[in-house]
């Protein structure tokens, strides 16, 4: 795709910097300190779950923990609390693996479940906009900040965790890392190995909020107004 006016623009910057243009060979220096690597260093997955649980209070997010056998029940409770009838989910093999598809099948008289389907195009967005609940599986979970990382793809549209009134993230315990550092490093390494980053990467931390009116925290602005995380052992 087009790149316009670049050469003159960058030549000028180089001349302001008092040197020739640099077009190759710039390496990041060794930083003198790396405090980001020290956070929760060496913690076990269970300890990270505790960190996450504690932080969920700060981010106005309900925290639940269960195992694969208990997931259907916890999901059911959460959907009831959210009065969730129309549900939109990503298309992800883990719904099958974790028995969620089976649960949806059993509940098919009560629940209207739409699985994101690329072939339907914009229709997916329209369903997401009407949906009561959006559900995604977390790809990488950041314990420190209580953040769900979602790699958005043709099977996992951004709208799922954005347009519905409420949001549920299913978090396999194995996806927990201490903080954003590990997620960023993972993406950086993939990029360095010639894999392209997904066109849309979302780091989602609880429901949307704003402090724009007299500095009062308002939970629920443009995105979901409520969020639940379900950690699965």
């Amino acid at each position: 795709m087009s790149i316009q006016n670049r050469e003159a623009f960058l030549d000028k910057l180089a001349s302001r910097l008092g040197r020739e243009r640099r077009t190759a060979g710039v390496e990041r220096p060794q930083w003198s300190v790396t405090p980001q690597d020290e956070v929760f260093k060496g913690m076990s997955q269970d300890e990270l779950v505790e960190v996450l649980e504690k932080h969920c209070k700060v981010i106005h997010t309900d925290f639940k923990r269960t195992d694969r056998d208990g997931l259907a029940k916890v999901l059911n409770e959460t959907l009831e609390a959210y009065e969730g009838k129309l549900i939109i989910t990503s298309k992800d093999a883990r719904y099958q693996e974790y028995g969620v598809n089976e649960f949806f099948e059993e509940q098919k008289d009560q629940l209207d479940v739409h699985v994101w389907e690329a072939a339907l195009g914009k229709e997916n967005q329209k369903i997401a906009e009407r949906a009561d609940v959006g559900i995604v599986f977390s790809d990488i979970t950041l314990a420190e900040s209580g953040t769900v990382t979602s790699f958005n793809t043709k099977d996992n549209g951004r709208s799922i965790s954005l347009l519905p009134r409420t949001f549920i993230a299913i978090i396999p315990k194995s996806t927990l890392v201490p903080r954003m550092t590990q997620a960023a490093r993972h993406i950086h390494q993939a990029q360095a190995n010639g894999e392209d980053v997904p066109s849309y990467v979302s780091f989602i931390t609880g429901p949307s909020n704003s402090a724009d009116i007299e500095m009062n925290l308002i939970v629920g602005v443009h995105g979901p107004v409520k969020a639940t995380y379900i950690v699965v052992d």
Partner: peptide
Amino acid sequence: SLLTRAAVGQKLTSYITALTGARLDEEVDG
């Protein structure tokens, strides 16, 4: 991390989004 802590005292804000180029074939959002 520096921005969200220094700006609003949050570890991260609710949404951090990284958008890369145009959407890929078959993607709907973006």
